[in-house]
Amino acid sequence: MPAKKQIPKSMILSAALKLLKEQGYEAVTIRQLAEELGCSTQPIYLSFSGMEELRRELIPLAVRDFETSLQAASKNGVCRLYDMPYIRFAKETPRLFCFLFMRANAFSEIKQALLPIIERSVQELMAVYRIDHEEADLLHDRLWMNAHGIAAMIATDFCDWDMEKVGRMLADCKSAFTKQYEA
């Protein structure tokens, strides 16, 4: 009896992330992964009990990819959910953006991974505008809501705004939302 071919989980998850970015979450199946890896489905089932377990382990990998992209795209390596790098991520990796931010219950699944990003932004807003945590959290969510709306419209090809216009829209919104704190 031939030995079962073992493929490292990390290799399977990397292939899953690649499929996710290129073809969308619907393409991430055991059969598609086997084809991508050039093996039967058996090695994948040796590492994962099924798609549910694989998806649970894919989520943190996708969030890390998102955070790395935002840090690389920002001028000072700071990761915020309401700046231009968030919009660029949606434009450049729309399928991954939709997986992370536009599925039913997606936020509840990735919330723990996003909390450090959100909390750093809230702390920064508290310091810059001299507001308490509750107010800074509300301001963060307002800014994110605006950026997310733009990003969602771009990721789904609803519109094709140029990045200069998007930058102006984000700046105008931030100015409007922060006006009350500037004294």
Rank of each mutant, 00 (worst) to 15 (best):
L81P: 00
E92R: 06
N76M: 13
D141T: 05
K9E: 08
A152N: 06
E135G: 10
S14V: 00
V63M: 12
L61C: 08
E22W: 05
C79E: 03
D172N: 15
L70W: 06
A72M: 10
R130K: 12
Q180P: 09
W161T: 11
P43D: 05
L58M: 07
F66M: 10
R142D: 13
P60W: 04
H140Q: 07
P94A: 02
E67T: 12
M126W: 02
R142S: 11
L100T: 14
C159A: 15
R55N: 07
H133Q: 15
A73M: 07
E53M: 09
L114C: 01
K21Y: 00
E92G: 01
N76S: 14
L143D: 04
V63W: 06
K174L: 14
W161C: 13
E57P: 02
E67P: 00
E35D: 03
G77T: 09
S14N: 11
L33M: 04
R88V: 09
E119P: 03
D157E: 06
T41M: 13
G38M: 05
L37M: 04
S121C: 02
L13I: 12
D141V: 00
A62T: 14
E164K: 13
Y25Q: 06
I44F: 03
E164V: 14
R142Y: 13
L114R: 01
L114P: 03
A34T: 02
Q6G: 06
A176C: 01
E134T: 15
A183M: 08
P8Y: 03
P85Y: 08
P85A: 07
N105E: 14
S47I: 01
S121W: 00
N146F: 13
L46Y: 14
R120P: 03
F48E: 03
L125E: 03
I59K: 09
R103F: 07
A27I: 08
N76C: 14
Q6M: 07
A3L: 12
G149E: 01
P2N: 05
L33F: 08
L54R: 01
E57Y: 11
E26A: 11
L96F: 02
D160A: 13
T29G: 01
G24K: 07
G77L: 09
R95V: 05
Y82P: 00
Q23E: 13
